[in-house]
Simulated assay, not measured.
Amino acid sequence: MTPTRRPPRRDPYQLFHIQSDFAAGLAPHQIAAKHGLPLPAVLRIIRRRKDERLLNPFNLRQGAVRSRGATQLYWVGYIAAAGRLFLQGSVPTLVLTVDRRDTDHVTTMIDDLCTGHPTCEWCESSRDGLQAYVRDRELAQMLAEWGAPGADPSEGSVPVALIPSSLLSHFVRGYLEGGRGMPPFGRRHVPLSHSAVRHIALEGPKEFLAGLNAALSKHAGTSAGDIRARRNGLAILTYRGRAAARIVQFAYRGAERSLPRTASLRHPEEPSRSRNGAGSSTR
């Protein structure tokens, strides 16, 4: 049973501005006064993390570490789509709803993101199917700073505007692959090429999807998608036709981490022109 009382979640944009103020030379008490927060809260926000490999939005925008962000942003996207972060209790818990074909992928995630002594337990949910319960304090702190969804999935929103444009494709790929049950990966078979993808549906908070839609229009060169509200408090962002294919092509450009079963999209089998002058195509 999920406890009804949950600790407050900080706005990722506010966390970013607090850390920016501290880097600019403001003292903690000045930051507290500027943002209307208790001094202990500010001190918790600006303290250095034990595992400095895990980058929050402020860290990631520093040029010296940006090269390390591709794999982490893939996982932030995957977790934002497939996970829920529960911060209450003695140990924060990340709950991932996982396709049965992808259990090894969770092990890869733990290897990539956790350096301490994380635990992972599996259970079967009557509503959601197979779930992984991952417990690691440092991972939970990083995910909270990225706005990972909580017990109420509508209360978390990843700050898309803070993702460097050079790393956006990795986040989008993770979000696509974490969207279990949503096209194009909700089907039994993965498309063999980018052009074979004709429909994409992304679920999430409406504000987040609006930001993602704008970012994809700018950086992936696609037309705007259609956003519609759902009864569960979330919304669906839909792309069809060429726009869907173009987003997949964008997401798998320079892929460093992805589901093993999406290898066909990392190395798509696109048709090529034959050289016999007949104008036919071969594979």
Score class of each variant (00 low, 15 high):
Arg66Ala: 14
Tyr133Glu: 14
Arg137Phe: 12
Pro153Leu: 09
Asp51Met: 08
His17Met: 10
Asn56Ala: 12
Ala81Pro: 01
Ala224Pro: 03
Lys218Thr: 15
Val197Leu: 04
Thr107Gln: 13
Gly150Ser: 07
Ser169Ala: 15
Glu269Leu: 10
Val190Leu: 00
Asp104Ser: 10
Pro184Gln: 06
Leu130Val: 15
Ala220Cys: 00
Ala33His: 06
Leu237Met: 13
Glu138Lys: 03
Leu37Ile: 05
Lys50His: 10
Gly116Met: 09
Met109Lys: 01
Ala161Asn: 12
Phe22Thr: 06
Asp226Gly: 11
Asp102His: 09
Lys206Ala: 15
Thr222Cys: 07
Ser90Gly: 14
Asp51Gly: 01
Gly147Ser: 09
Phe208Thr: 15
Thr222Phe: 05
Ser258Glu: 11
His17Ser: 08
Gly77Pro: 02
Ser264Leu: 09
Ala224Cys: 02
Pro3Glu: 13
Ala251Met: 07
Ser154Lys: 08
Arg5Ala: 14
Asn56Arg: 11
Thr107Leu: 08
His117Glu: 15
Met142Leu: 13
Ala229His: 02
His267Ala: 09
Arg188Asp: 14
Gln141Phe: 02
Pro149Cys: 08
Gly277Ala: 10
Gly211Cys: 03
Gly204Ser: 06
Arg100Gln: 13
Met142Glu: 01
Gln88Pro: 01
Asp111Ala: 12
Leu216Ala: 04
Arg137Val: 15
Pro191Asn: 03
Asp102Val: 06
Arg187Leu: 10
Ser166Val: 13
His29Gly: 05
Asn56Pro: 00
Pro159Arg: 05
Asp152Asn: 13
Ala148Pro: 05
Ala140Lys: 04
Gln19Tyr: 00
Leu73Pro: 04
Ala82His: 06
Ala214Cys: 02
Val42Asn: 04
Gly129Ala: 14
His29Ile: 12
His267Gln: 10
Pro260Cys: 03
Ala33Leu: 13
His170Cys: 14
Ser264Tyr: 00
Ile236Val: 15
Arg273Ala: 15
Ile227His: 03
Ile236Pro: 01
Gly156Phe: 00
Val95Asn: 11
Arg188Ala: 13
Arg48Asp: 10
Ala251Ser: 14
Cys120Ala: 14
Ala32Ser: 09
Pro153Ala: 06
His219Pro: 06
Gly83Trp: 03
Pro38Thr: 09
Ser281Glu: 13
Ala140Phe: 02
Cys120His: 04
Arg188His: 05
Ala215Cys: 06
Arg84Lys: 07
Ala215Asn: 08
Ala255Phe: 13
Val76Gly: 05
Ala41His: 00
Ala148Thr: 15
Pro149Arg: 07
Phe86Asp: 13
Ala82Asp: 10
Ala229Gln: 11
Asp152Ser: 12
Asn213Ile: 06
Leu265Thr: 11
His194Phe: 13
Gly63Met: 10
Ser169Asp: 04
Cys120Asp: 12
Ala80Asp: 15
Leu54Lys: 05
Ile236Cys: 09
Arg6Pro: 08
Leu167Trp: 01
Thr115Gln: 11
Gly89Met: 08
Arg61Cys: 07
Phe58Ala: 07
Met142Ile: 01
His105Met: 14
Leu55Ser: 11
Phe208Arg: 09
Ser193Arg: 00
Arg100Ser: 12
Ala70Tyr: 02
Arg275Phe: 14
Pro57Trp: 07
Ala140Ile: 04
Ala224His: 10
Phe22Leu: 11
Pro3Lys: 07
Met109Asp: 02
Asn59Gln: 12
Asp152Phe: 01
